[in-house]
């Protein structure tokens, strides 16, 4: 594995990470805290939407994000042949 390939691998890793963290920040700090009052005007069944994000939705998204990270990194590791 050459130095150049490795630095490319690292850059791609950082890109994946940053995108996932942006989603993480949007659902937790955006939907659940900063814009909770605006979202609460929308109702899904009995749930005001902002309240739902804060007590349910954000947690589901967190779980999904980690698994997406796992699968993307699996692929990246194989592509650059750095896996165990």
């Amino acid at each position: 594995m050459s130095k150049k390939d490795l630095s490319q691998y690292w850059k791609k890793n950082l890109t994946i990470m940053i995108w996932l963290l942006i989603v993480w920040a949007i659902v937790s700090y955006g939907c659940s805290i900063l814009f909770v009052e605006q979202l609460n005007r929308i109702k899904i069944g009995g749930f005001p939407l902002g309240f739902w994000f804060a007590q349910q939705g954000a947690i589901y998204v967190f779980v999904v994000l980690i698994f997406i990270y796992f699968f993307l990194m699996e692929r990246l590791d194989k592509e650059y042949d750095v896996n165990d």
Partner: peptide
């Protein structure tokens, strides 16, 4: 709820 789960990400 948020604080004790979001840290895992």
């Amino acid at each position: 709820l948020l604080g004790w789960t979001g840290g895992y990400v």
